[in-house]
Amino acid sequence: MPHDENQPAGDRSATAAEEGLRRSAAFLIDEALGFVFPAALRAAADTGVADALANGPATPAELAATTGTDARNLYRVLRLLATRNVVAEDEHGRFTLTETGQALRSDVPYSARNAVRMLTDRTFWLPAERMAHCLTEGTTAFDGVFGIPFFDHFARDEETAAVFHVGMAAMSDPENAVIAAAYDFPETGTVVDVGGGHGGLLLEVLRRNPGLEGVLYDRAHVLAGHRLDGDKEIAGRWSTAEGDFFAAVPAGDVHLLKRITHDWDDDQCVTLLSHCRRVVHPGGRILVLDAVVPRDNAPHQAKTLDLMMMASLTGRERTEADFAELLGRAGLRLSRILPTPTVLSVVEAVSV
Protein backbone atom coordinates (compact mmCIF):
# COMPACT_ATOMS: atom_id res chain seq x y z
CA MET A 1 0.00 0.00 0.00
CA PRO A 2 1.46 3.41 -0.92
CA HIS A 3 2.35 5.64 1.98
CA ASP A 4 3.31 9.25 2.50
CA GLU A 5 7.08 9.53 2.80
CA ASN A 6 6.53 12.49 5.08
CA GLN A 7 4.33 10.40 7.43
CA PRO A 8 6.15 9.68 10.70
CA ALA A 9 7.52 6.11 10.90
CA GLY A 10 5.51 5.45 14.05
CA ASP A 11 2.27 6.38 12.28
CA ARG A 12 3.13 4.12 9.32
CA SER A 13 3.81 1.26 11.72
CA ALA A 14 0.47 1.81 13.45
CA THR A 15 -1.32 1.81 10.09
CA ALA A 16 0.32 -1.48 9.08
CA ALA A 17 -0.61 -3.02 12.43
CA GLU A 18 -4.21 -1.91 12.05
CA GLU A 19 -4.38 -3.37 8.55
CA GLY A 20 -3.06 -6.65 9.91
CA LEU A 21 -5.75 -6.66 12.58
CA ARG A 22 -8.45 -5.95 9.97
CA ARG A 23 -7.26 -8.95 7.95
CA SER A 24 -7.21 -11.05 11.11
CA ALA A 25 -10.76 -10.01 12.00
CA ALA A 26 -12.01 -10.77 8.49
CA PHE A 27 -10.39 -14.21 8.56
CA LEU A 28 -11.76 -15.14 11.99
CA ILE A 29 -15.28 -13.98 11.15
CA ASP A 30 -15.24 -16.00 7.95
CA GLU A 31 -14.02 -19.07 9.86
CA ALA A 32 -16.71 -18.60 12.53
CA LEU A 33 -19.31 -18.88 9.76
CA GLY A 34 -17.83 -22.21 8.73
CA PHE A 35 -20.42 -24.19 10.70
CA VAL A 36 -23.09 -23.20 8.17
CA PHE A 37 -21.59 -25.36 5.42
CA PRO A 38 -21.98 -28.71 7.25
CA ALA A 39 -25.50 -27.58 8.17
CA ALA A 40 -26.24 -27.10 4.46
CA LEU A 41 -24.63 -30.44 3.67
CA ARG A 42 -26.85 -32.14 6.23
CA ALA A 43 -29.94 -30.41 4.83
CA ALA A 44 -29.10 -31.79 1.40
CA ALA A 45 -28.50 -35.26 2.85
CA ASP A 46 -31.76 -35.20 4.82
CA THR A 47 -33.86 -34.20 1.83
CA GLY A 48 -32.23 -36.51 -0.74
CA VAL A 49 -31.16 -33.75 -3.13
CA ALA A 50 -28.21 -35.75 -4.48
CA ASP A 51 -30.47 -38.68 -5.38
CA ALA A 52 -32.74 -36.26 -7.22
CA LEU A 53 -29.73 -35.06 -9.25
CA ALA A 54 -28.61 -38.58 -10.19
CA ASN A 55 -30.31 -38.40 -13.59
CA GLY A 56 -28.75 -35.12 -14.64
CA PRO A 57 -29.06 -31.34 -14.28
CA ALA A 58 -32.20 -29.86 -12.77
CA THR A 59 -33.48 -26.47 -11.70
CA PRO A 60 -34.26 -25.71 -8.07
CA ALA A 61 -37.98 -25.78 -8.94
CA GLU A 62 -37.67 -29.26 -10.46
CA LEU A 63 -35.63 -30.48 -7.50
CA ALA A 64 -38.08 -28.98 -5.05
CA ALA A 65 -40.96 -30.81 -6.69
CA THR A 66 -39.05 -34.09 -6.43
CA THR A 67 -37.82 -33.64 -2.86
CA GLY A 68 -40.79 -31.85 -1.33
CA THR A 69 -38.80 -28.75 -0.46
CA ASP A 70 -39.13 -25.01 -0.96
CA ALA A 71 -37.54 -24.02 -4.27
CA ARG A 72 -36.15 -20.66 -3.18
CA ASN A 73 -34.57 -21.95 0.01
CA LEU A 74 -33.28 -25.04 -1.75
CA TYR A 75 -31.53 -22.77 -4.24
CA ARG A 76 -29.84 -20.93 -1.38
CA VAL A 77 -28.50 -24.20 0.04
CA LEU A 78 -27.31 -25.40 -3.37
CA ARG A 79 -25.58 -22.07 -4.01
CA LEU A 80 -23.47 -22.55 -0.88
CA LEU A 81 -22.72 -26.20 -1.68
CA ALA A 82 -21.51 -25.05 -5.10
CA THR A 83 -18.79 -22.98 -3.42
CA ARG A 84 -17.20 -26.26 -2.28
CA ASN A 85 -17.80 -28.06 -5.60
CA VAL A 86 -20.42 -30.46 -4.23
CA VAL A 87 -22.77 -29.23 -6.97
CA ALA A 88 -22.29 -26.81 -9.85
CA GLU A 89 -24.72 -24.26 -11.30
CA ASP A 90 -24.74 -23.64 -15.05
CA GLU A 91 -25.68 -20.49 -16.96
CA HIS A 92 -29.32 -21.65 -17.17
CA GLY A 93 -29.70 -21.94 -13.41
CA ARG A 94 -29.61 -25.73 -13.43
CA PHE A 95 -27.57 -27.66 -10.89
CA THR A 96 -25.43 -30.72 -11.50
CA LEU A 97 -23.99 -33.12 -8.97
CA THR A 98 -20.20 -32.97 -9.35
CA GLU A 99 -17.75 -35.83 -9.03
CA THR A 100 -16.94 -34.51 -5.57
CA GLY A 101 -20.61 -34.69 -4.55
CA GLN A 102 -21.42 -38.17 -5.92
CA ALA A 103 -21.02 -39.94 -2.57
CA LEU A 104 -23.87 -37.85 -1.17
CA ARG A 105 -26.20 -40.15 -3.13
CA SER A 106 -27.71 -43.06 -1.22
CA ASP A 107 -27.53 -45.51 -4.14
CA VAL A 108 -23.77 -45.61 -4.82
CA PRO A 109 -20.99 -47.72 -3.33
CA TYR A 110 -19.29 -45.94 -0.42
CA SER A 111 -22.21 -43.55 -0.01
CA ALA A 112 -21.33 -40.92 2.59
CA ARG A 113 -24.91 -39.75 3.08
CA ASN A 114 -25.43 -41.60 6.37
CA ALA A 115 -21.96 -40.62 7.58
CA VAL A 116 -22.79 -36.95 6.94
CA ARG A 117 -26.03 -37.32 8.87
CA MET A 118 -24.23 -38.99 11.78
CA LEU A 119 -21.40 -36.46 11.99
CA THR A 120 -23.88 -33.56 11.94
CA ASP A 121 -26.35 -35.23 14.30
CA ARG A 122 -27.37 -33.29 17.41
CA THR A 123 -25.40 -35.76 19.56
CA PHE A 124 -22.22 -34.20 18.15
CA TRP A 125 -23.55 -30.78 17.12
CA LEU A 126 -25.00 -29.62 20.44
CA PRO A 127 -22.03 -30.57 22.68
CA ALA A 128 -19.63 -28.88 20.23
CA GLU A 129 -21.39 -25.57 20.90
CA ARG A 130 -20.43 -25.98 24.58
CA MET A 131 -16.78 -26.79 23.99
CA ALA A 132 -15.67 -24.08 26.40
CA HIS A 133 -17.14 -26.28 29.16
CA CYS A 134 -14.52 -28.92 28.28
CA LEU A 135 -11.80 -26.34 28.78
CA THR A 136 -13.04 -24.91 32.06
CA GLU A 137 -14.24 -28.15 33.65
CA GLY A 138 -11.98 -30.73 32.01
CA THR A 139 -14.95 -32.97 31.16
CA THR A 140 -17.12 -33.78 28.16
CA ALA A 141 -19.98 -31.41 27.39
CA PHE A 142 -22.32 -34.25 26.35
CA ASP A 143 -23.56 -35.15 29.83
CA GLY A 144 -24.59 -31.58 30.53
CA VAL A 145 -26.58 -31.39 27.28
CA PHE A 146 -28.27 -34.78 27.36
CA GLY A 147 -28.17 -35.64 31.06
CA ILE A 148 -26.35 -38.95 30.66
CA PRO A 149 -23.12 -40.20 29.03
CA PHE A 150 -22.88 -40.70 25.26
CA PHE A 151 -23.29 -44.47 25.01
CA ASP A 152 -25.93 -44.58 27.76
CA HIS A 153 -27.94 -42.14 25.68
CA PHE A 154 -27.63 -44.44 22.67
CA ALA A 155 -28.78 -47.43 24.71
CA ARG A 156 -31.91 -45.47 25.66
CA ASP A 157 -32.63 -43.90 22.26
CA GLU A 158 -32.93 -46.51 19.50
CA GLU A 159 -33.41 -43.94 16.74
CA THR A 160 -30.21 -42.13 17.63
CA ALA A 161 -28.35 -45.43 17.98
CA ALA A 162 -29.44 -46.44 14.50
CA VAL A 163 -28.17 -43.14 13.06
CA PHE A 164 -24.82 -43.74 14.77
CA HIS A 165 -24.28 -47.37 13.76
CA VAL A 166 -25.45 -46.91 10.17
CA GLY A 167 -23.38 -43.73 9.95
CA MET A 168 -20.28 -45.43 11.32
CA ALA A 169 -20.66 -48.20 8.76
CA ALA A 170 -20.91 -45.58 5.99
CA MET A 171 -17.85 -43.78 7.33
CA SER A 172 -15.89 -47.05 7.54
CA ASP A 173 -16.83 -48.73 4.27
CA PRO A 174 -14.49 -46.69 2.01
CA GLU A 175 -11.61 -47.44 4.41
CA ASN A 176 -11.99 -51.15 5.03
CA ALA A 177 -10.54 -52.71 1.89
CA VAL A 178 -7.43 -50.51 1.83
CA ILE A 179 -6.82 -51.01 5.56
CA ALA A 180 -7.16 -54.78 5.17
CA ALA A 181 -4.63 -54.61 2.33
CA ALA A 182 -2.17 -52.50 4.31
CA TYR A 183 -1.34 -55.21 6.84
CA ASP A 184 0.29 -58.60 6.29
CA PHE A 185 -2.06 -60.90 8.18
CA PRO A 186 -0.98 -64.46 9.10
CA GLU A 187 -1.94 -67.22 6.69
CA THR A 188 -3.99 -69.09 9.30
CA GLY A 189 -5.58 -68.33 12.64
CA THR A 190 -8.49 -66.41 14.10
CA VAL A 191 -9.10 -62.69 13.75
CA VAL A 192 -11.32 -61.11 16.39
CA ASP A 193 -12.93 -57.80 15.40
CA VAL A 194 -13.55 -56.18 18.79
CA GLY A 195 -16.46 -53.76 18.71
CA GLY A 196 -16.62 -54.52 15.00
CA GLY A 197 -20.07 -53.10 14.38
CA HIS A 198 -21.66 -54.48 11.23
CA GLY A 199 -18.53 -56.38 10.23
CA GLY A 200 -17.31 -54.40 7.23
CA LEU A 201 -13.63 -54.59 8.18
CA LEU A 202 -13.73 -58.27 9.15
CA LEU A 203 -15.44 -59.03 5.83
CA GLU A 204 -12.58 -57.44 3.89
CA VAL A 205 -9.89 -59.15 6.01
CA LEU A 206 -11.45 -62.58 5.45
CA ARG A 207 -11.90 -61.96 1.74
CA ARG A 208 -8.20 -61.18 1.34
CA ASN A 209 -6.98 -63.99 3.60
CA PRO A 210 -8.76 -67.28 2.78
CA GLY A 211 -6.88 -69.22 5.49
CA LEU A 212 -8.25 -67.07 8.32
CA GLU A 213 -11.37 -67.43 10.42
CA GLY A 214 -13.08 -64.49 12.07
CA VAL A 215 -15.15 -63.53 15.10
CA LEU A 216 -17.29 -60.40 15.06
CA TYR A 217 -17.65 -59.24 18.66
CA ASP A 218 -20.09 -56.54 19.76
CA ARG A 219 -23.31 -55.84 21.61
CA ALA A 220 -26.33 -57.90 20.54
CA HIS A 221 -28.30 -54.96 19.14
CA VAL A 222 -25.31 -53.97 16.97
CA LEU A 223 -24.68 -57.49 15.70
CA ALA A 224 -28.30 -57.67 14.58
CA GLY A 225 -27.30 -55.47 11.62
CA HIS A 226 -24.14 -57.37 10.59
CA ARG A 227 -23.35 -57.96 6.91
CA LEU A 228 -21.39 -61.21 6.97
CA ASP A 229 -24.27 -63.52 5.99
CA GLY A 230 -24.51 -62.94 2.28
CA ASP A 231 -20.89 -63.27 1.17
CA LYS A 232 -20.00 -66.65 -0.34
CA GLU A 233 -16.26 -65.93 -0.22
CA ILE A 234 -16.21 -66.13 3.56
CA ALA A 235 -18.97 -68.70 4.13
CA GLY A 236 -18.22 -71.03 7.05
CA ARG A 237 -15.25 -68.95 8.26
CA TRP A 238 -16.93 -66.53 10.63
CA SER A 239 -19.05 -66.37 13.75
CA THR A 240 -20.48 -63.66 15.97
CA ALA A 241 -20.07 -63.27 19.72
CA GLU A 242 -22.10 -61.00 21.97
CA GLY A 243 -20.60 -59.19 24.91
CA ASP A 244 -19.12 -56.14 26.59
CA PHE A 245 -15.47 -55.60 25.71
CA PHE A 246 -14.85 -53.96 29.07
CA ALA A 247 -15.71 -57.30 30.68
CA ALA A 248 -13.98 -59.76 28.33
CA VAL A 249 -13.06 -60.42 24.69
CA PRO A 250 -12.83 -63.67 22.72
CA ALA A 251 -9.45 -65.33 22.22
CA GLY A 252 -7.67 -65.14 18.88
CA ASP A 253 -4.44 -64.64 16.96
CA VAL A 254 -5.16 -61.08 15.84
CA HIS A 255 -7.41 -58.60 17.61
CA LEU A 256 -8.71 -55.64 15.61
CA LEU A 257 -9.86 -52.45 17.34
CA LYS A 258 -10.99 -50.03 14.64
CA ARG A 259 -12.09 -46.58 15.81
CA ILE A 260 -12.55 -47.98 19.32
CA THR A 261 -9.80 -46.58 21.52
CA HIS A 262 -10.50 -42.99 20.50
CA ASP A 263 -13.95 -43.26 22.11
CA TRP A 264 -12.61 -43.94 25.61
CA ASP A 265 -10.33 -42.42 28.22
CA ASP A 266 -6.91 -43.90 29.00
CA ASP A 267 -8.01 -46.02 31.97
CA GLN A 268 -10.88 -47.55 30.00
CA CYS A 269 -8.55 -48.27 27.07
CA VAL A 270 -6.05 -49.95 29.40
CA THR A 271 -8.84 -52.24 30.65
CA LEU A 272 -9.84 -53.16 27.10
CA LEU A 273 -6.30 -53.65 25.85
CA SER A 274 -5.44 -55.74 28.92
CA HIS A 275 -8.34 -58.06 28.11
CA CYS A 276 -6.95 -58.47 24.59
CA ARG A 277 -3.42 -59.13 25.89
CA ARG A 278 -4.63 -61.87 28.22
CA VAL A 279 -6.41 -63.86 25.50
CA VAL A 280 -4.27 -63.23 22.41
CA HIS A 281 -2.54 -66.44 21.35
CA PRO A 282 1.26 -66.68 21.71
CA GLY A 283 2.92 -64.70 18.95
CA GLY A 284 -0.34 -62.88 18.22
CA ARG A 285 -0.90 -59.23 17.46
CA ILE A 286 -3.28 -56.51 18.65
CA LEU A 287 -4.00 -53.95 15.93
CA VAL A 288 -5.32 -50.57 17.00
CA LEU A 289 -6.75 -48.92 13.90
CA ASP A 290 -7.05 -45.25 14.70
CA ALA A 291 -5.71 -41.93 13.56
CA VAL A 292 -2.25 -41.01 14.82
CA VAL A 293 -2.09 -37.27 15.40
CA PRO A 294 1.01 -35.71 13.78
CA ARG A 295 3.11 -33.30 15.82
CA ASP A 296 2.99 -30.35 13.45
CA ASN A 297 0.81 -27.39 12.52
CA ALA A 298 -0.56 -28.89 9.30
CA PRO A 299 -4.29 -29.65 8.92
CA HIS A 300 -5.20 -33.25 9.73
CA GLN A 301 -8.62 -34.84 10.18
CA ALA A 302 -7.47 -36.37 13.47
CA LYS A 303 -7.16 -32.90 14.99
CA THR A 304 -10.78 -32.17 14.10
CA LEU A 305 -12.04 -35.55 15.29
CA ASP A 306 -10.16 -35.04 18.54
CA LEU A 307 -12.30 -32.03 19.44
CA MET A 308 -15.47 -33.90 18.49
CA MET A 309 -14.38 -36.64 20.90
CA MET A 310 -13.63 -34.06 23.58
CA ALA A 311 -17.09 -32.50 23.34
CA SER A 312 -19.18 -35.68 23.18
CA LEU A 313 -17.15 -38.56 24.62
CA THR A 314 -14.42 -39.23 27.15
CA GLY A 315 -11.87 -40.34 24.56
CA ARG A 316 -9.34 -38.58 22.36
CA GLU A 317 -7.18 -38.98 19.29
CA ARG A 318 -3.59 -39.88 20.22
CA THR A 319 -0.04 -39.28 19.07
CA GLU A 320 2.54 -42.03 18.63
CA ALA A 321 3.89 -41.24 22.11
CA ASP A 322 0.38 -41.44 23.56
CA PHE A 323 -0.13 -44.88 22.03
CA ALA A 324 3.22 -46.14 23.29
CA GLU A 325 2.38 -45.06 26.83
CA LEU A 326 -1.15 -46.45 26.68
CA LEU A 327 -0.01 -49.83 25.37
CA GLY A 328 2.76 -50.00 27.94
CA ARG A 329 0.25 -49.57 30.75
CA ALA A 330 -1.64 -52.59 29.36
CA GLY A 331 1.46 -54.81 29.28
CA LEU A 332 1.94 -54.35 25.55
CA ARG A 333 4.68 -52.92 23.37
CA LEU A 334 4.15 -50.74 20.33
CA SER A 335 6.05 -52.68 17.66
CA ARG A 336 5.35 -50.47 14.63
CA ILE A 337 2.92 -48.04 13.03
CA LEU A 338 1.85 -48.63 9.45
CA PRO A 339 0.19 -45.76 7.58
CA THR A 340 -2.72 -46.54 5.27
CA PRO A 341 -4.24 -44.54 2.38
CA THR A 342 -6.91 -43.42 4.86
CA VAL A 343 -6.72 -41.11 7.88
CA LEU A 344 -6.21 -44.22 10.03
CA SER A 345 -2.95 -46.03 10.77
CA VAL A 346 -2.31 -49.60 11.92
CA VAL A 347 -0.81 -49.39 15.40
CA GLU A 348 0.62 -52.87 15.96
CA ALA A 349 1.11 -54.08 19.54
CA VAL A 350 2.61 -57.26 20.99
CA SER A 351 2.81 -58.64 24.52
CA VAL A 352 5.82 -57.54 26.51
Rank of each mutant, 00 (worst) to 15 (best):
T67P: 13
L344Y: 14
T136A: 03
A251M: 04
V279D: 02
Q268Y: 02
K232Q: 04
V279L: 01
T188H: 10
D193P: 13
E320P: 06
D70E: 13
D46P: 00
A58G: 14
A32Q: 12
L305H: 06
P2C: 00
G331Q: 08
N55I: 08
T140P: 01
G56C: 12
L78G: 03
A330C: 11
V166D: 10
G230R: 08
D231F: 03
R237C: 15
A88R: 08
I29V: 07
P109H: 02
S335A: 13
L332M: 12
V350S: 13
R336S: 14
A17T: 11
G214K: 06
A64P: 09
A302G: 15
S239I: 04
F37P: 03
V350P: 09
A302Q: 04
V254R: 08
A71Q: 10
A9F: 13
A82I: 04
A224C: 08
A161C: 03
R72H: 14
L326D: 13
A32E: 10
E325Y: 03
T100I: 05
V178D: 12
P299D: 02
L206F: 07
T319M: 08
E317Q: 15
H153Q: 12
V77D: 12
A302T: 09
G20C: 09
E204Q: 15
E18V: 15
T261N: 09
A61D: 11
F323G: 05
A61R: 09
L78T: 05
E99R: 13
D267H: 08
V192D: 02
T98L: 11
L272K: 06
M168K: 02
N6H: 14
L287E: 02
R207C: 00
V86E: 07
T136L: 07
A26R: 14
D107T: 14
I29C: 01
P294K: 02
R295C: 07
L338V: 12
E18S: 14
G199C: 03
A170D: 02
D267F: 04
D173Q: 05
R285Q: 10
H255C: 09
L307F: 07
E213T: 14
A115H: 05
G328F: 03
G252K: 00
R79F: 09
V116I: 12
N55G: 15
A39C: 06
E5I: 02
A103R: 05
E233R: 15
A241L: 09
E348S: 01
G211M: 01
R117C: 00
T66V: 07
A54C: 11
